[in-house]
């Protein structure tokens, strides 16, 4: 379970501290048991519902609109440089 948690924490890019890990290992087991209740119900030949209201996509015309100003686009960026967003290094 701890290994699974570590894997999930990496996949979701959420670091967990020791305290959280201890808590969540316990929670995962309980929540999985809760999820597993669905195992009781027969879903053979049942189609999944991906969109609850039966709608068909309404398209957008290929007509250009106005983008955000550079100022607005970058306004919330924690770090920026020369019109770019500044992200951490890759390697």
């Amino acid at each position: 379970m701890e290994k699974l948690l570590e894997h999930l924490s990496w996949l979701a890019r959420v670091k967990l501290c020791n305290y959280e890990r201890k808590l969540l290992v316990n929670d995962i087991a309980k929540i999985m048991e809760f999820f597993n209740r669905l195992g009781e119900i027969d879903v053979k030949d049942v189609e999944p519902t991906t969109h609850v209201i039966e709608l068909v996509s309404v398209f957008r015309e290929d007509k250009p609109g106005k983008p955000l100003s550079l100022d607005k686009a970058l306004k919330n960026a924690p770090s920026k440089e020369g019109g770019f967003f500044k992200a951490p290094r890759i390697l």
Partner: peptide, 26 residues
């Protein structure tokens, strides 16, 4: 003329960075 999911213009080549963005594509 526009992006796949928003109406930002698609001729981004040679444009200053982050000037062809909107809430959707950002």
């Amino acid at each position: 003329k526009t992006k796949l999911f928003c109406s930002c213009p698609s001729d981004y080549r040679g444009k200053p960075p982050n000037t062809y963005v909107c809430p959707v594509c950002l």
